[in-house]
Amino acid sequence: MPALGPNPRLAVFKFASCDGCQLTLLDCEDELLTLTRRVEIADFREASSQVIEGPYDLTLVEGSVTTEEDRHRVQEIRAESRFLVTIGACATSGGIQALRNFADVEEFSRVVYASPQYIRTLATSTPIRDHVSVDLELRGCPISKHQLLETISAVLTRRTPDLPTDSVCIECKRRGNVCVLVARGATCLGPVTQAGCGAICPAFHRGCYGCFGPQGTPNVPPLTHRLHELGASRGELLRVFRTFNAAAPAFRQASESEERAKT
């Protein structure tokens, strides 16, 4: 990792998304003012009307690419960035708007808009790394505050951040949760989903729905087999894999396999 100057510049950019991941930065109430002493916020439209031109030492990119303009914009951003981190499910796997990848986007347009001819959009929603090189990806819908701070702090000290690719289960057990799949028969994607959220869903008695995308070595087929045994329908599993990380390869394969079996 290259050395950063004494006053590194941070930029935050948004593509198709809900703003939640960049809001995570503002949600670091206890750390925000310490952070802004260590970095100069050069371009962060949600938080500041002051815009300092690039290049940036650390760029956070939220959202997926869904328009022709954005395809170009992300390349400009990359060219201005020393270290580019994509944040959240939209930026790392296309997000919920990647559901269009499985459907006809013009049909979608007609559903929402009376005059779809005004709407210009690409047929797919794709992660940032499909368009430019990405130095690091932070998963999650939304990302974890802890992982965001760890990443920023790591970039500032020029080290690799600690971002485990383990399953949600290990966080779930460290937290002392009772397994909702075993004890309730809940449809839980925890075993195949990457840790990072803190296993909040099982802590609230519901199954994990995969916000953080697939874990390091996701072995999905035996899980879907078990969930079917527990009574989950093909439609339910198709939908649960096809939500916030629908286009992540392991989840995509899982939903497509449910779809094939259904028809």
Binding site: T34, S153, I170, R174, V182, G190, V192, P222
Partner: peptide, 30 residues
């Protein structure tokens, strides 16, 4: 191996499994 999810549940529930890793958490100010 084809059935196993590599989810870690067995090792977490096991009363004797003792594997651990370490984690360094520096403050933002360093």
């Amino acid at each position: 191996g084809r059935r196993c999810l590599a989810c870690t549940n067995c090792t977490m529930a096991c009363p004797t499994c003792f594997c651990s890793t370490t984690e360094e958490v520096p403050s933002l100010s360093g």
